[in-house]
Amino acid sequence: MAWIKIEGQRIDFHDLQDFHPSSPNSENIVEFANSWLSGHHSFEFQTSGSTGKPKKITISRTQMECSANMTMKALSLTSSDTALLCMNPTFIGGKMMIVRSLINQMNLVVIEPSSNPLKELDEPVDFAALVPLQLINAINNSDSFKKLKSISNIIVGGGQVSESVRQEVKSLDNHIYSTYGMTETVSHIALQLLSKHSDGNHFTALDGVEIGTDERECLAIKAEVTNNSLIVTNDRVEIIDSNKFRWLGRIDNVINSGGIKIQIEQVENTISEIFNSFGLVNRFILKGFKDDFLGEKVILIIEGKIDGKSLESLSQYLPTKLHKYEKPKEIHFVDKLIETPTSKIVRNTDYKIVSSIVI
């Protein structure tokens, strides 16, 4: 039987029933693993709102087994591999790392979720799941970066991967994937290779996943993980072929400025490239603010500070790369962008502005 390393102790999974965790994170992992091993047939999860308002849903054991098998096949994972769990185990992404380990009899190393869990990693692992912030911080720490490069397969979920990060990992020899998925699809149903040999910015659906669009051009998904029911998302996509699609952004992340509909994520991608060219690593978001003339005006909200010279260059360069309606009318600075428990940036909130400029 495979083992789990939790709170520094290496324990056979079946012996977890006698383990007494000392942290809420460990308690969640132990409770779920014991429930799975005792044969529970269904589990309750909170959705993030990808297909509508957040709600609680029940996912069957069969669906989770199917999802795990699809991932293991896509990444060629074997029972000789060791997995790393350093995400919040309350949500589907963390739970599925446990399920994959149990089904495939992989060893599992548990590290408490943090902004850079690889700093605490003290033994080799072959497979890991990270959120974008964890990937960024691993890249920016020399010791963590060495560990990152040694992990054969890494899946990154819970948010967009910035252009600067893509540039950092595109030459790496290991396999780093951006994932597309949600609670309703029992974790990811498509992968996009970010590291060496990447063949573009599209996602490739896993075997057995059918994709299409509705009248809004939003992605629709049907697979065993959805109980062969059609799941219609709020994600606008461009279908390339029967198993490939390009993600354009959330249909509810549109700013209507002067009658022009602006897809936030597409503009953010361009701004990310500009940030990368200036060596800026600050996180940022675009928001629409009410405007008497335009209806909504585009505002760029940047986390932290940037020096005066970079700010001046940024202000001058943005209008050359963006349409006049896409160009931010103001830049606001905040101390910290708010995150959800799954490390997604919260857009729909009133941020406390530290300073701002009009451009």
Rank of each mutant, 00 (worst) to 15 (best):
I4N: 13
I4Y: 11
E7V: 04
R10L: 12
D12P: 15
H14R: 14
S22W: 02
S35Q: 15
G39S: 09
H41G: 13
Q46Y: 03
K56Y: 10
I59T: 06
S60T: 15
R61V: 07
S76D: 13
S79N: 12
C86W: 03
L102H: 10
S115W: 07
S115E: 14
N116I: 10
D122N: 14
A129H: 04
P132Y: 08
L133A: 09
A138V: 05
K146Q: 12
S152T: 05
S162W: 11
E163F: 15
V165E: 11
S178K: 05
L193Y: 03
H197P: 00
S198M: 00
H202D: 09
H202V: 00
F203Y: 15
I211C: 11
G212K: 10
N228G: 00
S229W: 00
N234P: 03
N234I: 02
R236C: 11
I240Y: 07
W247E: 01
N253P: 02
E273D: 14
I274E: 14
S277C: 11
F284A: 06
K287F: 04
K290C: 05
F293A: 11
E296G: 01
E303I: 08
E303P: 07
G304D: 04
I306P: 03
S315A: 10
P319G: 06
K329A: 11
F333K: 03
V334Y: 08
P341E: 02
P341T: 02
S343F: 07
R347T: 12
T349C: 14
